[in-house]
Amino acid sequence: MRSYYEFRIKEKYASMLFADDEGERLGTSVRKIVLRGDDPRLPEVNRLDRELKQGQNKPRYFYAGWSIQYKYTHREIEAAEAFKLKVTSVFEPAGEERGTEYDESRACPACGTGAPQVTPLRLPAGRIPKTKDFSRTIADEVVVSQRVKDAFEECGVSGANFATVVSTSRSKGFVEGRYQFEATEAAAEVAPPTVSGNKPSDLDTEGEYRCARCDLLGLNLLSELSVARASVLDLDVQATRAYVGLRSGLLRPRQVVLVSPKVYRLAKEMKLKGVAFEIAYLV
């Protein structure tokens, strides 16, 4: 496996570590820099970000945005026992903005995590991406296409639930050919060496976005996912018991979805759009 870190470095600080012709300029104030996980400058990126932030009334940051990608060999893919499912297509509005209800009385009283959805997902049909097989709202409500539902059912994929989506467009009724996708079970236990935190330079050692009263791991996963083998069920689709994210406004922490090699192969054969996969490790 090779990891790649993409940073959006503030141009006024870029010269502190990078050559003038390095990376890609995005306008006049931001530069995109991609580093391999074994690049010796990666720790320096994080050090500079921490140092710029410290002791300032108005926080400064070396980088404003980041992402991590993992590249696998064919052998690693073939040997994988599970995969983390990532929905890459995002749209608005969130279901709550259109009348989807959650039972907040059952959420964690400390951080607001875990309120269950108690009514069908309500969305304007025209806002759901038509060219994507998987997409999600900003509240991580996942919507899939008819072809996903048909293929999963035809191939006997276990552990997935497909619920109708209520249309809030003029036509009302249900959104034709679109379904809310959820795992029926959430028991997988996240295990070391999984790392969570705010961003690569901030592991949230003070627990700003972790919760001691529930299963909220933090704001983001900063590594590949490992789960306890004994907690993994014999299902093709399942979720972790723990959550990642932040309860703020329309945003809700999400459980991580795991899928079997069967689902991974099916998605690749069908060339499903709007979804990506990372290897998840059973330990």
Results as ranks from 00 to 15, higher is better:
T119Q: 08
C155H: 08
V283Q: 13
K84G: 09
L42Q: 07
A188F: 13
E224D: 15
V157W: 00
V90G: 02
D202A: 10
C211Y: 12
Y61K: 15
P120Y: 07
D39A: 01
G197I: 00
A160C: 04
L266G: 02
D234Q: 05
T113W: 07
G245N: 04
G112W: 01
T184L: 15
G274V: 08
N161S: 15
Y61L: 12
G37R: 01
S145A: 08
G249Q: 09
L266F: 08
E141Q: 13
K10V: 11
S226E: 04
R210L: 11
V165P: 05
R178I: 02
E24Q: 03
V256K: 01
T28N: 03
D150A: 07
A188D: 11
A139D: 04
L250N: 13
R25G: 02
V148S: 05
D236H: 01
T113Q: 03
T194S: 05
R122K: 14
E141A: 13
A188T: 09
E176M: 02
R50E: 14
A239S: 15
E101N: 03
G207F: 14
A125C: 04
I9T: 03
R213M: 09
F134Q: 11
E92V: 12
L233R: 08
K58F: 12
E22I: 02
A276H: 11
K271L: 12
A239C: 14
D215L: 03
A276S: 15
A183E: 03
C155K: 12
E81N: 03
D21H: 01
T205K: 15
D234Y: 08
E76N: 10
C108T: 09
G99R: 05
E189Q: 12
F7R: 04
Y13G: 05
G99S: 09
A280V: 12
N46V: 10
A239K: 03
R241Q: 05
C111Y: 04
D204Q: 10
K32H: 10
S167Q: 04
K268G: 02
G218W: 02
F7P: 02
R25E: 10
A115P: 06
D140M: 00
V30M: 11
E189I: 13
S105G: 08
E92S: 14
G55N: 14
T240I: 01
P261E: 02
K71A: 15
L26E: 09
R210H: 11
K130M: 03
V142C: 01
V257G: 02
L233I: 06
T205C: 10
L42E: 00
G207Q: 15
A94W: 07
R50I: 04
A212R: 13
A191I: 05
V275D: 01
Y13A: 10
G126H: 09
D38M: 13
L85R: 07
P93V: 08
